[in-house]
Design a binder for these strands. Structure first.
Lengths: 357, 357
DNA sequence: CACAACTATTGAATCGATTTAATTAGTAGA
DNA sequence: TCTACTAATTAAATCGATTCAATAGTTGTG
């Protein structure tokens, strides 16, 4: 075809300059919409854009980033993508980023702390302009975020409360969640309610318990200590399931009576259902069970799991918006407002809970 | 501190050159292990490395890529990351890439075809050196890969058979999978076996059916046409579940007798279990159910789902290895060997199937 | 001893953009 | 008339590496 170099070398800015009859400088200014483009005549702009278009010009990301010292990327570091909890958060992040000029660079630390740090460094090397850490409940708080503090990189953490200078967090209101969970069971008539608390090291765990406790206090509901158990420290995404199985088996063996159970999260709840079934009982007939999170598979189990939903997609969006906000104000002194953002949980009614006969 | 410039400007190659006493050229050659480094004296190398180390030098990715025309990255394009099927494949890819100098750049098309193309272009713009497409069963075959063919970019597709020039695929041996599935039920004594086939447009679906059919032929097992149904075209990752519910309800209503059911995949199987339970029956007591895939949640449902495992992590690894291989031979003419790689499925025994009473 | 071949290192060009300071022209105010 | 400012455009420097051709020095060989 006429005009198309047989050598399929890339189309560069200079090609556009030649074709449009303006200098590379002007072309650059127009196409990258630099501040100076205010002074460029409208006709010039148009002609340059047309030339670029007709040549199919795409700026070279590397050259651009090298000179401008901007990457137009945001690092998204997930601690363990196999945790179903994460996926919807990612969706929220991606959707929010879509309308901007930022590109997410997603890395999965595969539940490995070293990997996490390695990828963290890689993201820094790639000069991401901001960072979103998706921290599932396995995320070890101790010191892992130390290095985040050093760099002055606007950072948001989703799913974990990390109150540090220049680091913002978005999490669900765990206390309210716990409150709602028992409230639901209470309103169904249950009074002997077992609770499987999360690992003690997890702040989520304690907050949810606080909510449960507060409700109990307000309604003079007796929480029998013998019916309150705690998951051991978690190792991988499904250890919650196994913990749920074991603790529930143990509760059943103990011959304590209970007609309902609040599980720390959905996986624990699924474990409880499994244990119940193993003992020849079933939910909700013999025992109502409520989970927490509303991970996708909660809707797919039989019975469908009644649970407290974390608005995961919203959490992703909220974190991203705040990050963008910090980035927009002034890139140099970008500071994420430090405070914590709490999102409201919601009760999702399915079939694992029922009115006490 | 002594030596540390208060202005925290980056450490560049020139700084290392100054400190080590060699020229930038030599430093570059040594640190990037270019071919010429064969001729650099061992002592020189050592001194340069030490200088770089002590300054904390990290090469600038953008400058490097600009000049060398290499990005050291591999694009990983997932059609829908919320499909549990994908996650383990990703893990396989990442693990294989870890020991190399390639960095995966992961993008999630969020089940949106336009998004897929947008991200595809973005990856090209970022000059990835190879591409891995993780295509779950929702991936629309028609024409979506057209553009892959144009660019001469080494490409592997996981989870879908795309036989195109210069595109390799890695999938599970679906026919064998189907064969194993009925075989298992047959050996448990089942003779009246229902089958929920996948959407007709899906080649997976037909292959699995072929396997089932072949087994039936070899063992003169009668497959009652009235017990064979087909899922409608899929829309989102969980439409298999709903399809499973509806078809199973329909089968139950039809009053045809069957003691076992082969579901197209795990989600469909979970749907079948749900429908069974809705009709007051349960698996495996009233009907044995076998799924396909072994997605993570198959182990968490009650009863645990007996299923045919796709070796997803291996599939990811295999695809990556072959891509690396193509990349290694000669970057310019890198060609992925076109042929399809079939991985063996395996029966995973859990509790949703049992011997016919 | 001349010539090649190899070792060891470097100067200078280059990748493709952005950005700064400079240039020109026009126009308004003192 | 001179200054000051704005509008419109551009030449040239720059970002931080890689790479190629060039330069010596050294060794081998016929």
């Amino acid at each position: 075809m006429a005009g198309s170099k047989s050598k399929s070398s890339r189309v560069t800015l200079i090609d556009v300059a030649r074709k449009s009859g303006f200098s590379p400088s002007t072309v650059s200014i127009v196409l990258s919409e630099a501040p100076l483009s205010r002074y460029v005549a409208a006709k010039t702009k148009e002609r340059i854009r047309k030339a670029a278009q007709s040549l199919g010009y795409r700026p070279d990301v590397f050259a651009r980033s090298l000179r401008s010292r901007r990457s137009h990327t945001i690092g998204v570091l997930v601690f363990d993508i196999s945790d179903p909890f994460c996926v919807l958060i990612l969706r929220g992040i991606e959707k929010t980023l879509q309308s901007t000029s930022y590109l997410p660079i997603l890395m999965d630390a595969q539940h490995d702390r070293e990997q996490f740090e390695r990828y963290f460094d890689l993201l820094m090397e790639r000069r991401v302009e901001g960072l979103i850490v998706v921290a599932n409940w396995l995320f070890d708080e101790g010191g892992l975020l130390e290095r985040l503090k050093d760099r002055h990189m606007p950072t948001m953490v989703v799913g974990r409360d990390v109150s540090e200078k220049n680091i913002g967090s978005v999490i669900v209101d765990n206390e309210t969640g716990g409150y709602i969970a028992v409230k639901h069971l209470y309103e169904l008539g249950h009074r002997r309610i077992a609770v499987i608390r999360g690992p003690g090291a997890l702040s989520d765990s304690n907050r949810r318990w606080n909510g449960i406790h507060r409700f109990a206090g307000e309604h003079s509901l007796q929480l029998d200590e013998k019916l309150v158990r705690q998951l051991p420290g978690a190792i991988d995404p499904i250890s919650g399931f196994e913990g749920g199985v074991q603790i529930t088996e143990d509760l059943l063996r103990s011959r304590q009576k209970f007609t309902a159970l609040v599980a720390f999260d959905d996986l624990t709840a699924l474990g409880a259902i499994r244990a119940l079934s193993g003992a020849g009982r079933s939910a909700p007939r013999d025992c109502s069970i409520i989970g927490f999170d509303d991970v996708p598979l909660a809707a797919l189990s039989t019975p469908g799991l009644t649970t407290i939903r974390q608005p995961m997609e919203d959490m992703g969006s909220a974190a991203t918006s705040r990050l963008l906000n910090a980035l927009g104000n002034s890139r140099v002194t970008a500071e994420v407002s430090t405070n914590l953002e709490l999102l409201r949980p919601a009760l999702v009614l399915r079939d694992s809970t029922s009115r006490l006969a």
